[in-house]
Amino acid sequence: MTETTHYTKRTTDEKRTEEKERPAPKITVKAMNFFYGPVQTLFNISMDILPRHVTAFIGPSGCGKSTFLRILNRMNDIIENTRVEGDVRIDGIDIYGKNIDVVALRKRVGMIFQKSNPFPKSIYENIAYGPRIQGITSRQRLDEIVELCLKKAALWDEVKDVLNKSALALSGGQQQRLCIARALAVEPEIILMDEPASALDPISTAKIEELIFELKKMYTIVIVTHNMQQAARVSDYTAFFYLGNLIEYDTTAAIFTSPSKKQTEEYVTGRFG
């Protein structure tokens, strides 16, 4: 990446150079509108999400950031009477196309929720469940998958001797990392995180944030957070939403040092929201 020699607003040339050096997007959204019945809640959203980067969605409560997150793996389909207009593609394929296997989509695009939701099973079975459903029956192979995913989720050392223990006996932070490991077991390409640390203590939050830094080397991560400082710490790109509109989308460094829009500046400095 070309080094800029000043840290106020980037010039047009600097932005052009950055754009040239960017990899092809993993997810592209063009002119997307979303409706709950007759009520429109997302308006003309267009953005590109880059592979193996962390993109954060920020904005006040009710701005549509979680709704938009769920667009990316069609989780809104399970809500009655919703409608998506526009274009949402992953690797160039329209995920709202007629022949899309939604189950396969949700395997590629994993999701971590605010409240951790491990299965009422053992730690081992939580991780092995997905691969088993996919047809993996070899015990050795399942053992390998469980160990690998727990290591990737930075949980292996804490649970390796108690894999048969109930997942529900783990702490909140451990349960959330277990949910991440469970998502990794089905080899996703994209991980969506909806306020993954908001229910956790500061140490567990720090562990999740460190984990995000490791995971982004292999996965594309999109995270919704109401904690602006968290977005600043963990993400490469930040999108600011307000009342269903995408107000500004730029590198996290630009959003938190010299945002282009006054509204963004007012939000990140705490003047409203």
């Binding site: 020699t5 000043h6 840290y7 600043a232 710490r233 996290t252």
Partner: peptide, 19 residues
């Protein structure tokens, strides 16, 4: 001078993003 500006930028962004 270029090095000074680059370090200023590094620190400025660090303070803004990492608290």
């Amino acid at each position: 001078n270029t090095a000074e500006m680059a370090i200023d930028k590094e620190i400025f962004e660090f303070l803004a993003l990492k608290q």
